[in-house]
Design a protein around this nucleic acid. Structure first.
Length: 916
DNA sequence: GAACTTACCTAG
DNA sequence: TTAGCTAGGTAAGTTC
């Protein structure tokens, strides 16, 4: 569908006019490059196709006679029969949810009424799908036992709470009679604050269903009366943990791990391995060694075309779906093994793909849904499928009353429903999203992936210095693949459909490519591997990574670490407060530097501060507790913000422990990466080390998230406080040692620094000298700080143009002292997306002239020329348009003329040149 | 027209 | 029911 992602404007480095012209003629004369690529797929498969009695480029006028049986390769491989008494079942779990169902005789847990059952979906090594029902795990939470509580009161407490919860229910359609399953006394300690490692009696309250936790917690907070105890309010612990996460933490299951069901411990029931198991019988394998492998998952990518009316965005209740292209690929393979287009009306054949023609739109939709169920993909991808293609299909199917369409998940009988979801965060603002439930399948919308990662910097290597200006599939594909969509204007789609089988063929090729590109992007960005590694490292299900925020990942790790020490996490009420002080930005000595500037950085600054000073919830010490606990000054530290934390000799913090695990695992992954020769395994390991780094960096953010699960400003403000102290100290140290009086050629001067870095003018003439002294200085400064805090030499800028705080440019030397790696621009118009291309290009060219050619006069001349071109209307209008497609629906506003802006910016540039 | 506020985007 | 953080530049609008 082109409407959703029309290309609002040219992007930097876009395809040249000449190439575009060529592509247009290619349409008429010869097959496009993409068509050749498609036909190549076919060659290797001819033999197999013949065996199956079906060529890959068949046109099948199925009409009303559609049947999946005609297409044997759509199906998963046959599942060998499994004898549960003598064989184990091993599969990679890829999604996990729960439902309420009848209890199963012989399985652990409650026997009466509805019980929560965890459902794990996965794939075996042989490519067979598994649905595993895990029985017997019930939700629970904790409250501290009141003073004087003994086990004799357990029964009464349970009865009273049960009664209160029942009374609280407005309706009881499930006819629940028992809400509280059990109350036990257990020794636990709150993870918030250090209080002398004193574990206390906690009540562990097990509820019949996850949704009963919230009312039970609320009632206990309001105050419960039971036995001889006075009415009191109970602070609850871990009552705000998702049931899925609770299960995963307790049973040591992480996202995408391998699960083993021992022989004799599970029961098989339906098709392709649908099994039942007790939760304690299941074995979860840590993602190490051989268990890091990935099952042959099926990835389906698709794209739809609609015949809209002239100039109107297609509406599902009026405009028909005319084509759906699908490509299916096994994870780890390089080519899709299914390439089909479902078309409305006839369509000429396309070598390398199969065309299914329908006369009725209703049949087309119903057949595609059947196709999807037959292919049974584990992962569904596409571009903007979440907010466009899927909603459109569901709405269209509803409008046409295709009643069997909306069953797209892997659980029989569960309807896929469209829901609106409102997302809000300080960072992203308010965002509206749609969701479609599809049990057991992971929806991987590439637009979401790219969008989220532009903020998360997961693909920094590929994004490198300039971020995407446009989020159209076209721009994204060009950016990452140097490849573009087939050239079809959305305005002519309806005309192509109303033409003949040749024009519809042209549309089909276009549609196929739109289904193919996301698959290629998925591969290029190694999404599946990277996300799987992230799920494994942080312990959350794969689906959470695209649908939830950052916090859940830290919560999952925190709970896992806390459980080992019998620590429990309190539920805190969230209310936004005052912001705290962040990092220092050293006042820049603005100007142009025609000599090397060395840059020194603290690597992983915030994680290393937390580790070095043992900052954690569990080590936070109240001033009043120091005496009470009899602590000596040697036992704790005072941070720059005046907060107290006990040292790790007293108690080692959970957060430092998590960070150490993450960073040491990262080191291991990097070491393994070096040794590994297999390119596929290399990818896995690289994805892993990246996931580990990102996870480490998000721990600090979690403690400072005031509207979050467990904010602790004492930690976050201490972290930034230490950071401020360190950068100041670094400046002093460098400037005090590298002086003429100490025998160096010049007095060193820190001319700029931001958060974790200092830019030093060492006064040496060559890049090589700057590198040597820079390395030495980094090492020497590091010795003044507590490990693992480490200052590293990173790069030399030469020359360097420092315009303002967070705005500078320079030639970047890191690997070789002879040639620069790149021109590095920070915060300048060239990297900002709120400027029109003309301004960005002009500034970029000027910077090149100044820094590379060292010709400021040339820069001035260029600027003058461009301005005169502009005033004489010699500039293409596209250069003056700002594209803004940060929201999913392509949003484009034109007409912001650059005249004024440009004039001002040129003045600014002249000023820079004057400095020189 | 200075002083302040807001929107947007970036650095780290 | 859901949401990582702060610092800071620049343009444009608003107030006095």
């Amino acid at each position: 569908m082109d409407f959703k992602r029309r290309n609002g404007g040219p992007f930097v480095g876009g395809v040249s006019q000449a190439k575009r012209g060529k592509m247009a003629t290619e349409w008429e004369d010869s097959p496009s490059h993409f068509e050749e690529e498609l036909s190549m797929f076919d060659e290797g498969e001819m033999d197999m196709e013949e065996m199956e009695g079906q060529a890959g480029h068949d046109v099948i006028p199925v009409g009303d006679l559609f049947s999946a049986d005609l297409n044997p390769r759509w199906k998963r491989p046959n599942a060998p029969t499994l004898d549960s008494s003598s064989e184990t079942l091993v599969f990679q779990q890829i999604d996990l949810d729960y439902y309420l169902g009848e209890s199963l005789a012989g399985m652990p847990g409650q026997l009466q009424g509805k019980v929560p059952i965890i459902r794990m979906f996965g794939v075996t090594d042989g490519g067979n799908s598994v649905c595993c029902h895990v029985h017997g795990f019930a939700p629970y939470f904790y409250v501290p036992a009141p003073n004087g509580f003994t086990s004799e009161y357990l029964g009464e407490f349970k009865r009273e709470l049960n009664t209160a919860v029942l009374k609280d229910m407005r309706s009881n359609k499930d006819n629940i009679s028992v809400t509280v399953l059990a109350v036990d006394i257990t020794r636990k300690e709150s993870m918030y604050g250090y209080h002398g490692k004193r574990s206390l009696d906690f009540l562990r309250i097990t509820m019949a269903m996850p949704r009963l936790i919230a009312p039970a917690k609320r009632l206990l907070e309001q105050g419960l009366k039971f036995g001889p105890f006075p009415i009191q309010s109970y602070q609850s612990y871990e009552a705000n943990i998702d049931f899925e996460i609770r299960f995963m933490v307790d049973s040591d299951v992480v996202g995408c791990c391998w699960i083993e069901l021992p022989k004799g411990k599970y029961r098989a029931s339906l098709c392709q391995y649908e099994v039942d198991v007790g939760w304690t019988d299941m074995i979860s394998h840590p993602a190490e060694g051989d268990w890091q492998r990935i099952a042959p998952l099926r990835v389906l990518s698709f794209d739809i075309e609609c015949a809209g009316r002239k100039g109107i965005f297609p509406e599902a209740d009026k405009d028909p779906v005319i084509q759906i292209a699908s490509m299916v690929q096994r994870q780890g393979e390089t080519e899709p093994f299914i390439r089909t287009v479902f078309t409305l009306q006839s369509c000429a054949s396309i070598v390398g793909s199969q065309i299914l023609c329908f006369t009725q739109e209703k049949q087309l939709l119903q057949s595609w849904a059947e196709f999807l169920r037959t292919v049974d993909p584990d992962i569904i991808t596409g571009y903007n499928i979440q907010n466009f293609d899927f909603p459109y299909l569901l709405n269209r199917a509803a409008a046409l009353k295709v009643n069997l369409f909306p069953y797209l998940g892997r659980v029989r009988g569960i309807k896929s429903v469209l829901r609106d979801l409102n997302f809000q965060s300080k960072q992203m603002g308010r965002r509206e999203n749609k969701t479609i439930n599809m049990e057991g399948r992971v929806q991987f919308d590439l637009l979401q992936v790219i969008f989220l990662n532009s903020g998360l910097k997961l693909f920094t290597v590929l994004l490198r210095d300039y971020k995407l200006r446009s989020y159209t599939l076209n721009a994204v594909s060009f950016h990452f693949l140097q490849e573009q969509k087939e050239d079809v204007q959305h305005s002519i789609i309806t005309d192509l459909q109303n033409g003949n089988e040749q024009t519809r063929r042209r549309l089909a090729v276009y549609c196929l490519k739109d289904a193919y590109l996301p698959l290629r992007l998925l591969q290029k960005l190694m999404c599946v591997i990277n996300y799987m590694e992230m799920a494994r490292v942080t312990g959350v299900p794969l689906t959470y990574l695209l649908s939830r925020g950052q916090q859940i990942k830290v919560v999952s790790q925190l709970l896992r670490q806390a459980m080992k020490q019998d620590l429990v996490m309190p539920v805190v009420k969230t209310e936004g407060g005052e912001d705290y002080t962040g990092a220092t930005v050293i006042e820049p000595e603005k100007g142009y530097y025609s000599l090397p500037i060395a840059t020194l950085d603290f690597s992983s600054l915030y994680p290393s501060i937390m580790m070095a000073h043992n900052l954690c919830y569990t080590t936070l010490l109240q001033k009043s507790s120091v005496e009470k606990l009899g602590l000596s000054p040697d036992d704790f530290i005072k941070t720059p913000t005046g907060d107290l934390f006990v040292k790790n000799s007293v108690r080692k913090g959970l957060l430092p422990e998590i960070l150490e695990n993450l960073l040491s695992a990262r080191k291991r992954a990097k070491a393994e990466l070096k040794k590994e020769t297999d390119p596929f395994k290399k990818q896995v390991l690289d994805g892993r080390q990246l996931a580990l780094k990102i996870s480490a960096n998000s721990v600090y953010g979690f403690t400072g998230a005031q509207v979050g699960k467990l904010p602790c400003l004492e930690i976050s403000q201490s972290v930034t406080g230490f950071g401020r102290q360190m950068i100041e100290r670094t400046k002093q140290l460098v400037e005090s040692k590298y002086t003429i009086s100490n025998g160096y050629t010049a007095d060193a001067k820190v001319i700029y620094g931001d958060t974790d870095s200092v830019m030093v003018k060492l006064g040496v003439a060559t890049v090589k000298e700057a590198m040597t002294i820079g390395k030495e200085a980094a090492e020497w400064v590091s010795s003044h700080f507590t490990p693992p805090i480490k200052l590293e030499f990173e790069k030399v800028y030469y020359p360097y143009l420092l315009i303002n705080k967070k705005r500078y440019a320079g030639l970047y030397f890191s690997t070789s002292a002879d040639t620069h790696d790149k021109m590095d621009c920070k915060g300048i118009e060239t990297v900002r997306r709120d400027n029109c291309p003309l301004v960005a290009n002009l500034i970029n060219t000027c910077l090149q002239k100044i820094l590379i050619d060292r010709d400021p006069q040339g820069a001035v001349a260029h600027a003058k020329e461009v301005i005169s071109d502009l005033l004489c209307n010699r500039i293409d209008i596209s250069q003056l348009v700002i594209t803004k497609e940060l929201t999913r629906t392509a949003q484009e506003y034109a007409g912001k003329q650059a005249h004024v802006e440009l004039a001002e910016r040129s003045v600014c540039l002249f000023f820079c040149c004057c400095i020189i």
